[in-house]
Design a protein around this nucleic acid. Structure first.
Lengths: 129, 129
DNA sequence: TAATTATTTAAGCAAGTACTTAAATAGAAT
DNA sequence: ATTCTATTTAAGTACTTGCTTAAATAATTA
């Protein structure tokens, strides 16, 4: 309870009815999950790009693909694809396996469960309307 | 089966072992979910920003908050907060309710389920180490 | 009506993003 | 060894993002 006193609270509005207890509670809540939010935000920021979201969707369905495959499927240049892959690899969203000169990418075990829950919301729509 | 012939397939690599069937299947898959991916990507792009992710996390816990609250909790300027809220409202991630001159924001019913599954991955970490 | 409060909007700018093209690596095949 | 293939890296650039400050709305109160 006393910890609350140590949290700074500057008010943006001069409201009569501001719920200071609520505001302090929110700040404490955020503080308690800051590391978690930091990590999830990084993954979300990567998956928030349409190209990368498609890449993750494809990886989930196909298990593994190489840069060349992505370029063909998404009709993009190989360097553009490679740079997206690098970003996701840097944050350990995907991992690699080498086979000769081909490098296969797949969703890393670490993030598989989280991405699966998100990707499960991608639904096939009817084109018959 | 014949539809596949109509999909263009330019190859980025001159591999001997490219799996053209797989590549065409992927293109068709993506095509079938394009509208869905379009929509989810928009929400993901918004939630992929750390400030907005925190705002959504807070909204889920507190049910509704006003711009002023957000500014106090996140220690940011009111206009900065307002602009984030606008972006999320534009895509119908959040909705508003007016009470006098205060405007309360909440997660829209339309996106509540999806955001809940994502936000449920935010976990409290122990600080005792 | 005038002053106050909460919020939004607009303009400006620094920083970040996502491509492009060209060059560099690295393994495979001749 | 030299050439070919797959991939990555680097430099350059147009576009987008997220803040800032100042001004505009809109509801409330004196």
């Amino acid at each position: 309870m006393l910890e609350r006193i140590y949290m700074k609270l500057e008010t943006s509005c001069i409201r009569a009815e501001a719920d200071y207890v609520q505001i302090l509670r929110c700040k404490e809540d955020l503080n308690a999950v800051s590391t978690s939010i930091e990590g999830i935000s990084k993954v979300m920021a990567l998956a928030g790009n349409k190209v990368r979201f498609k890449m993750l969707y494809l990886l989930q369905r196909e298990n593994e693909l190489c840069p060349c495959d992505f370029a063909d499927i998404l009709e993009m240049s190989v360097p553009a694809i490679s740079q997206h892959l690098r970003k996701m690899k840097d944050v350990n969203v995907i991992s690699t396996r080498r086979d000769g000169q081909t490098i296969f990418y797949r969703i890393s075990e670490e993030n598989k469960a989280f991405l699966t829950t998100i990707l499960s919301n991608v639904a096939s729509e009817r084109k018959t309307a």
